[in-house]
């Protein structure tokens, strides 16, 4: 992307003999890795709000059951899992009824998987915007991930109802829940940034995403408990998949499973943050070509 330099921060303009007015914008080719321009991103926060709001508003237009889709998908998956894995395969579930064991994992997972899918296709889907107007492109995948929050809240409400039905009282650790949601969001965005930037040039990505989410789901302790892995070192390494931390954290905070995710959470958070930072820089590096190739 062009290097945008605000008049007040500019330092690299060659000074001529007479004092030259500092340009509001300095447009020139960028080379290599470029800064994230977080300050500019902040300036465009209202656009982020409006795009997120648009995605939420439009998502269930012209559907019959509307926002019920947000609930239906994880609930149906939970029922299927409960029948096959919980009922037939007798999968252990850390002493919690299997339906709520799997649903507590499916709620953050669905949020993550949806955000990932939406964000990855977001740039290609917004090609008309990208070709016609300038704004920090990071806003597009960011708003895609954020627009999933409403769906998450709806699915979460069902989780609360289920907990009441099963008579499960959340532990005090529930205060960590917002941070766990944030962790899911960071992971989703991190991967989404990588894939959306790649997807602009290589539409292969679109076909990879369904596989990726499917494999990733089985690499995440959703249908089975992470406690199946007994070696604590290996279990911590398992946290390299940030969703392991999220899912185990949800169960720990809400259902009181004893797999206190100390080391796992730490590894997961680090992995997620690395994903996000690398994704953001890669995105910014590729950004200059978006309008030309999308």
């Amino acid at each position: 992307m062009q290097t945008l330099t605000e008049a007040d921060t500019i330092a690299s303009i060659p000074s001529t003999s007479q004092p030259e007015e500092q340009p509001y914008l300095h447009i020139k080719p960028s080379k290599g890795w470029v800064s994230l321009q977080l300050r500019e991103l902040w300036k465009y926060r209202e656009l982020l709000y409006f795009l997120t709001w648009r995605d939420i508003k439009v998502r269930y237009k012209q559907t019959v059951i509307g926002a019920a889709w947000a609930i239906l998908q994880p609930v149906m998956t939970m029922i299927v899992f409960s029948i096959f894995f919980g009922g037939l395969a007798k999968m252990p579930s850390d002493g919690v009824p299997y339906p709520i064991f799997s649903y507590a994992a499916l709620v953050p997972w669905t949020f993550f998987a949806h955000g990932l899918g939406q964000a990855s296709n977001s740039l290609v889907g917004s090609s008309n915007l990208i070709k016609k107007i300038y704004f920090p492109r990071l806003i597009i995948p960011l708003s895609s991930v954020m627009s999933g929050v409403i769906d998450f809240l709806l699915a979460f409400a069902v989780l609360i109802v289920m907990m009441l039905m099963f008579g499960i009282v959340p532990t005090v650790n529930v205060i960590w829940l917002p941070l766990l949601v944030l962790l899911a969001m960071v992971t989703s965005l991190g991967i989404g940034l990588w894939l959306s930037a790649l997807n602009v040039e290589f539409r292969d990505i679109r076909y990879i995403i369904p596989f990726l989410t499917q494999f990733w789901m089985f690499l995440t302790p959703i249908v089975y408990p992470a406690s199946l892995i007994e070696n604590p070192t290996i279990r911590a390494l398992y946290g390299l998949n940030p969703m392991t931390g999220v899912v185990e954290g949800f169960r720990w905070a809400l259902l009181g499973t004893d797999t206190a995710p100390g080391a796992v959470i730490l590894v997961s958070s680090t992995a997620a943050v690395l994903l996000l930072i690398s994704g953001a820089f890669y995105f910014r590096r590729m950004e200059k070509n978006f309008a030309d190739v999308v």
Partner: peptide
């Protein structure tokens, strides 16, 4: 600023 120049600059 929709696309970037290959060379040169604009102020």
């Amino acid at each position: 600023r929709i696309t970037e120049p290959t060379s040169g600059e604009a102020k």
